[in-house]
Every structure is written in structure tokens, then in C-alpha cells.
Design a protein around this nucleic acid. Structure first.
Lengths: 112, 112
DNA sequence: CGGGATCCCCGACGATACTG
DNA sequence: CAGTATCGTCGGGGATCCCG
């Protein structure tokens, strides 16, 4: 199914998440910064795909694009919650992993 | 989130789904057949990853491996339902597409 | 600032052959 | 039947430049 195919692509979930976290409209560069500085080409691609999918939208006043989640995008985030919950539970029960008792949390890196 | 990283890989969801559909234990070749004949190397890879993730497991009586979902795997499938539901709704409302407005909205195909 | 065009590279995928 | 090892291919991303 195309939806999961899109969401499975690299950075897509990260972008959706950042869009969700920021709440309000957010600029291109700002979004790029939040995503650990992913390349503009990739960000453009993901954004285009998300726009075509009706998940994200941009207001372009003039010179300052403002990206945001559409209502549909909000529903998506909501629909993902159970899976995220499961994912956390899953991450917490792995046989071997997860050292860091002392403190520095690891970057939530999605895998380079 | 490594979980989604794994699930995003090609064939992974398909394998999980087939494992779920079959209900009981299922053989390697049989599983391969159900997946439209994906290569054994890839299937081995996915199976190994799923086993390490605690999502799938295999009983090996002797000469006949039997793969099945673990309880955790079952939870995963359950956690995916809302997303699948959203995904179906999403597929039915695309801006341009969807030649059949009249109503047969089906095709419960989960295949990638 | 916003984002398209281009090039290169790595890693996943796929088929085949082979062992137990 | 079950699974491993190897090799070739292909496409997606990452970087960078550049234009509006």
C-alpha cells in the first residue's frame, strides 16, 4: 500500500513528526535544521510527496514558505500512536542493548 | 525508532502479514511462495531480523522449520490496525485518482 | 530565505548456486 | 526442505551548486 510505502521512506516520518511537534507553520530551513540538517534535495522531495499525499501543505505569503500538517496529517499522527507505543515497549525489552544509564541520551537517529 | 526502520524495509510487512494470516506455523518455502516468490536470501534476512526483534520465531523439530508470530508480533499487528484503517481512508480520497467514485471501495490487499 | 538540478556513492534487493 | 554465500544491478539519498 502506497501510504506505508511513503511513510517507510527515509526521513518521511521524521519530517511529519517535526511538523507535528512545531505545531504551527515552520520554514524550510528551520525544518531542515530540526532534521539534523538533511539535504535540501531530499527535504524538497519528501515535502513534495507529502503535499501530494495531502498530509502537509504550505502557505506561501511571499518569500517565506510556511509548512504545516493538514487535518489529514493530524489524523495520521493520531493513527500512528498505537504503533509508536508498541515501538517504545518493543525498544524497552530488547535482549541486549540500551546501556546509557548515566545520562547522555543517544540521538534518536533513524539510521544512517 | 528502529522498529519503524525495520518495518519500512521491503517485504517485512508482507512477511509479518502472511505469518499473521496463516495463523499457525508455516514452512520456509511455503512462506516464500506466499510472498510471490521473493528470493530466499532476502526472506532469510527478514526472518532473521524479525527473530532478533522478537516478532517472529521458529520451531525446528527436525528438517522442517515452522515459523510463526510471537505474542509480541501479534501485538504489533494489532497496533498497526489504526494505521491501516487510516491508510485505506487515505487511499480513497486522493485528489486526482480514484476512478471509481460510485463506491466499491475494496481491495484489502496489503501488499507493498 | 526557498527550493530545483545535478552527480556520485553506498547499501538493499534480486537471482543463482551450493551445502546440510 | 532449510538456509547460506556470492555477485550484479538499481535506486534513493547525500552533497553541492545555483537560480528566484
Amino acid at each position: 500500500m502506497a501510504a506505508l510505502d511513503l511513510l517507510g521512506r527515509r526521513w518521511t516520518l521524521r519530517v511529519v513528526w517535526e511538523l507535528h511537534e512545531s505545531g504551527g507553520p515552520i520554514g524550510f530551513r528551520e525544518l531542515q535544521r530540526r532534521c539534523d540538517g538533511m539535504s535540501s534535495s531530499v527535504l524538497t522531495g519528501r515535502l513534495t510527496e507529502l503535499r501530494e499525499a495531502g498530509i502537509a501543505a504550505s502557505d506561501v505569503p511571499s518569500g517565506a514558505a510556511a509548512w504545516r500538517l493538514t487535518p489529514l496529517g493530524g489524523e495520521l499522527v493520531a493513527a500512528m500512536q498505537p504503533l509508536l507505543t508498541w515501538s517504545h515497549a518493543w525498544a524497552a525489552q530488547l535482549p541486549d542493548e540500551d546501556p546509557a544509564p548515566g545520562g547522555q541520551g543517544q540521538g534518536a537517529n533513524t539510521s544512517p
